[in-house]
Simulated scan of single mutants.
Amino acid sequence: MQPLKLVETTPGHYSLLLTAGDTPSDTAVDEAGHEPNGYFWEGMAEWLIRTRVPELDGRLKFDPEGGMFCAYGTDREALAALGSVMAEVVNAPERIGALIATAEEAGVVFDD
């Protein structure tokens, strides 16, 4: 799941975290015309849920910032599943451009 981290913030409450601007895909995200900040990664997470893991829809919440992506909730399994799917994207800069283009063609507007 690296570079994402899943932490228990308080008993029974978890956060999935990614330090934005420090990922293997940053340059590719820039080249696709986006800023690789927490808001961009929220949009990507929502797209991945919609297209790859729809069973996670409604099972977690988002609270990104400029320098950090954060998904949180009490469903550790859902957060871990999202972390695994996101790690595939974050660690595959050669695929991110096409994924962004596909999402944008489907109407996704990345709020970066």
Rank of each mutant, 00 (worst) to 15 (best):
1 M>I: 10
1 M>G: 13
2 Q>W: 10
3 P>C: 03
6 L>N: 04
7 V>G: 01
12 G>H: 11
13 H>G: 03
13 H>R: 15
15 S>K: 15
17 L>R: 10
20 A>T: 02
20 A>S: 12
20 A>W: 04
20 A>D: 01
22 D>C: 11
22 D>W: 11
25 S>H: 08
25 S>R: 07
25 S>N: 13
26 D>M: 07
27 T>A: 15
29 V>H: 03
31 E>N: 15
33 G>F: 09
37 N>T: 05
39 Y>P: 05
39 Y>W: 12
41 W>T: 10
44 M>K: 09
44 M>R: 08
44 M>G: 05
48 L>S: 03
50 R>P: 01
54 P>Q: 11
56 L>N: 02
62 F>S: 06
63 D>I: 06
66 G>V: 04
66 G>Y: 09
71 A>Y: 08
76 R>D: 04
79 L>V: 06
79 L>E: 07
80 A>E: 15
85 V>D: 04
86 M>P: 09
87 A>P: 10
89 V>D: 00
89 V>P: 01
90 V>W: 04
91 N>C: 15
93 P>L: 00
95 R>A: 09
96 I>T: 12
98 A>R: 14
99 L>F: 00
101 A>M: 12
102 T>C: 02
103 A>D: 03
104 E>T: 15
108 V>H: 06
109 V>R: 15
110 F>G: 11
111 D>Y: 05
